[in-house]
Design a protein around this nucleic acid. Structure first.
Length: 424
RNA sequence: GGAGAGAUGGCAGAGUGGUCGAAUGCGGUGGUCUUGAAAACCAUUGUACUGCAAGGUACCGGGGGUUCGAAUCCCUCUCUCUCCGCCA
């Protein structure tokens, strides 16, 4: 969430910027500022009353000690009114505080000045398109047919065991998953990211920390009996490592990578682009996360984008890089770049990575702060993350683009990981 | 799942109703001493809100209660540890 201080100091700017995200903030920001005025007034009154109470209590204690019981009892009578005032003021203060937080949680992150206006995907800016679009023979197959033909993925079995969107990988299909995961993790490690294996299930607090809650409650599988959530991305557990942490400026950058299975309910998205591997309830992804100094986060974002790009290049897939418009940039992100690979038989661009700078938006929720050397003051850190990479759509493109009459060719860089150079 | 114990500052660990934001030790930071270092000694060392400042207020796992006054007593939730059971 945005910090109150930022909103107060940049009211008009914020309202203007949020229009890029198609969010009309004028009313809510007005309410917040009024509420905060109330909060301050209420708080200082509470503090003063509390102070009076404290000194009176001390006095009573001393009176009792020195045996002046009557005087003490007299003083005690005075506390009755004070107590009542305190309980009124503090319950009011509590309700103001929760109210304020609820409102703050409703405001999306401020988009970076470079984010173009726009409603949806059609307004995203194509930064570049690279790689050769393969020409397939006219009897080329989409990946779900290829997966069946070569016995790589069994969608029906997944359906039987669990339900739609939970495919079962087998044989070379399973090995390909494992190869890609190791390939990605190794490249991320070489780029300086420390590998972690996080829990796949998180508590409510973690969900709030990275912004999945309350905005995207319906997107996560909820284990109600224990009030835990299946992670929709490793971003959630990794970033929450740093919840409630105060770092030193010299700790930056913090870089973590993790493979995890990801679980998404995808409620409401049935019927659209859901064939095969295009959209699943459970999928594999390798994620990268950085915690950065505010002055260096955009430089870090660029490096992250370049890193993801280098991985896609190694896979020899045609791709394009998009700068997302306001309407497509997520609630919590300030600036997001998407990578899409071209899946030839479907003739579709598929999103395989999303790299974002959240600035201090998550950090504020997480209470992730740092101190400059020789400074006592804490400030909010910046968080960034990106997919490096999401597997299913990479697999879709690999299968479709590399199909030949002899079988499916494996890109050179991946062969040491798969142990085979063709699927036949 | 059953029985018991516990949760205090960066860490260890005291504190069982007032003078406790909290002893002491370790660690951190600054300094004295030293050619340099170590040792020793001195000082300092949590977070947040509020205020120009001095200061004030809150926080001893979370929430609630008793009391003039709670780290300390009561209720409740969460978590951790030990033993037993079950188990990859």
């Amino acid at each position: 969430m945005l910090s109150l201080k930022y909103i107060q100091e940049n009211q008009e700017e914020a309202i203007k910027a949020l229009k890029i995200k198609n969010f009309d903030a004028r009313e809510i920001i007005g309410t917040i500022i009024n509420l905060d005025e109330k909060r301050k007034a209420n708080q200082s009154e509470l503090d003063a009353t509390q102070a009076e109470m404290n000194s009176l209590s001390k006095e009573i204690g001393n009176l009792f000690k020195s045996g002046k019981t009557e005087k003490a009892n007299l003083a005690k009578a005075k506390t009755v009114e004070l107590k009542e005032t305190i309980s009124e003021l503090s319950s009011e203060s509590n309700s103001i505080l929760t109210n304020l937080r609820d409102l703050l949680l409703q405001i999306p992150n401020i988009p970076h000045p470079s984010v173009p206006a726009g409603k949806g995907e059609e307004d995203n800016i194509i930064v570049k398109t690279l790689g050769e679009i393969p020409t397939l023979s006219k009897n080329a197959l989409p990946h779900w047919e290829l997966a069946k033909k070569y016995n790589l993925i069994d969608f029906e079995l997944g359906n039987k065991i669990t339900g739609a969107g939970f495919p079962l990988y087998r044989g070379k299909g399973a090995k390909l998953q494992r190869a890609l995961i190791n390939f990605f993790l190794d490249l991320n490690r070489d780029a300086g990211y420390e590998e972690v294996i996080p829990p796949l299930v998180v508590n409510e607090e973690s969900g709030y920390g990275t912004g999945q809650l309350p905005d995207k409650e319906g997107q996560m599988y909820h284990v109600t009996e224990d009030n835990l959530y299946l992670i929709p991305t490793a971003e959630v557990p990794i970033t929450n490592i740093y919840r409630d942490v105060i770092l030193n400026a010299e700790d930056f950058p913090i870089k973590n990578t993790a493979y995890s299975a990801c679980f998404r309910r995808e409620a409401g998205s049935y019927g659209k682009d859901v064939r095969g591997l295009n959209r699943l309830h459970q999928f594999d992804k390798v994620e990268i996360v950085q915690i950065q100094h505010p002055e260096k986060s955009y430089a870090a974002l660029e490096v992250m984008v370049a890193h993801v790009e280098s991985i896609i290049k190694k896979l020899e897939l045609p791709y394009r890089l998009l700068r997302l418009c306001g309407g497509d940039t997520s609630f919590t992100s300030a600036l997001t770049f998407d990578f899409e690979v071209y899946s030839a038989a479907q003739d579709k661009w598929l999103e395989v990575s999303s790299v974002s700078n959240f600035e201090s938006y998550q950090a504020n929720r997480l209470k992730l702060r740092f101190k400059e050397k020789n400074s006592k003051k804490t400030q909010l850190a910046h968080t960034l993350n990106g997919s490096a990479l999401a597997l299913p759509r990479i697999v879709a493109a690999l299968l479709e683009n590399n199909q030949t009459p002899e079988g499916i060719r494996i890109p050179k860089a991946l062969i040491p990981y798969t142990g085979f150079d063709i699927i036949d």
